[in-house]
Simulated assay, not measured.
Amino acid sequence: MRQHAVYVTALLIVLVPVFIVPGCKKSTDDDELVGNWSISTDFENDARAEAVLFTIGNKAYLGTGVSSTERYNDLWEYDLDKGYWTRMKEFPGAARSAAIAFAVGGIGYVGTGTDGYDEFADMYAFDPVANTWNSSLKPFPGGARKDAIAFTIGDKGYVCSGYDGSDLQDLWEYTPNGDGWEQKKSISRRRSAATVFVMDSKAYVVSGSNNGTALNDLLVYDPSTNDWTEKRKLTNVSDESYDDEYTSIARYNAVSFVMNNKAYLATGQYGSYMSTVWEYNVATDQWTERTAFEGKLREGAVAMVLNNRGFVLTGRNGSEYYYNMFEFNPTAEQNDDDNQ
């Protein structure tokens, strides 16, 4: 969602694609790449970008966001087994985009973001069993912002970076028991609209925007040591051959998701909208290009994994907003017939 909504989360400027940036068109080598994108269940409400999404069990919850005409404070539940969306109790805060969301202990947490004029620091908790919101949580102590990232490790939630007039780099840990926040070690460089995934109880922060430039770093946060480790760069900067094709990994306002101990990076933009999809192998600290995203190019989308199946949905391209959803099978052969 660039989350300067969700997205995850977003600039409100209409972006004009520049089609000469490497990696921003469908790869001419797709026949040699692995992975297949197929059209899936459409989101059943208004097309939007920069929404929030969190998962609890085998269900996903999508809400807030922005379209060409308005911002939203709705919430929808997706049941993969049933294959449809159900409207849940409305988010009690102001309609917003570029907010954050995470889930801990069967409860979803939503906060921060922007209404297009002001940023927010308020936080809310959603109980999907009771279908109720708790509006009495303490505000996020890092201050009002948009385009932050959020993640869950164990029984804690985390909020990092974002934008409040300038890019940010602070990190905060949330403990639901006691509704308490504690500041942790900041990430090394300021950024907004970054992408994050969690593997083996560590958070991997990918790229992001620093003064409008996509950072070429991958940083890992380990809560057990409260420390950050930098992995190999996302561009071709070494004398080795592994990164010779690293021309289109760095980006912002993208999505990531994890399946079978591999992470996948898709959508987003850097100069223009990115179609290239990259798979990250934690064991080797290397990236491999996979079949390009086969929907319309977009930023500010959201992603989810349910039953070890990965999906990308919503988002925007300039003034065009989307409600469609695509599923990615990383081991299947690419098939044009199932994404129309």
Rank of each mutant, 00 (worst) to 15 (best):
N177E: 15
K184T: 09
Y174G: 07
R145M: 09
Y163R: 06
K146G: 11
G142R: 07
G162R: 08
P139D: 14
R145N: 12
G178P: 10
S135D: 13
Q169S: 15
D167K: 08
W181D: 02
P139K: 08
L171F: 02
G142M: 01
D179M: 13
W181N: 05
A144Q: 11
T132H: 03
L137M: 14
Y174W: 13
S186M: 09
D170K: 06
K138F: 04
S136P: 02
G180T: 14
N134Y: 04
N134M: 01
F140N: 02
T175Y: 03
G162E: 11
L168H: 04
Y174P: 07
A130G: 05
T175A: 13
K138L: 08
A150D: 10
P139Q: 08
S161Q: 11
G162N: 07
V159W: 00
S186G: 03
L137D: 12
A148C: 03
K156G: 01
L171R: 03
K184R: 14
D147Q: 14
G157S: 03
L168I: 12
A144Y: 00
W172Y: 14
C160F: 01
D179S: 10
E173N: 02
E182P: 00
R145T: 11
K184F: 03
R145S: 12
D164P: 00
W133H: 10
T152P: 07
K138C: 05
T175W: 02
G162S: 07
E182W: 00
T175L: 05
S186F: 07
E173G: 06
D155I: 07
D170S: 15
